[in-house]
């Protein structure tokens, strides 16, 4: 199968993630959509590594995974702290700061 198809799949996954961030209300789900975007990027990095015939892209995918893991720790702790004070993880309810 042509590697271009994987690039297409990666773009579709990235787009799904983007739409998810824009339309979903629960902070955890929004965060999962961001993780989906990062992993879509991983797919295209690995595909480009295959197309270019070098391993750089695969190494980069590992870096992205580590960064994503660090982001999960920080993100979930922030979402937890706001959940404890408000009893909700909806991003629509966090609306005290505006205009």
């Amino acid at each position: 199968m042509s590697p271009t198809n994987y690039l297409l799949l990666s773009a579709i996954l990235f787009a799904i993630g983007t739409v998810g961030v824009l339309v979903r209300r629960n902070a955890i789900v929004v965060f999962m959509c961001i993780e989906l975007m990062l992993n879509a990027v991983n797919l295209s990095l690995v595909t480009f590594a295959r197309i270019n015939g070098s391993l750089d892209g695969q190494v980069m995918a590992f870096f992205v995974m580590v960064v994503a893991a660090a982001e999960v720790v920080v993100g979930l702790s922030i979402i937890m702290s706001i959940f404890r004070t408000r009893r909700t993880a909806s991003v629509d309810d966090a609306n005290l700061l505006k205009y």
Partner: peptide, 12 residues
């Protein structure tokens, strides 16, 4: 509450 809200917004 304002502070935590800003952190969530900034993070996401």
């Amino acid at each position: 509450v304002l502070s935590q809200e800003s952190a969530v917004k900034y993070f996401l």
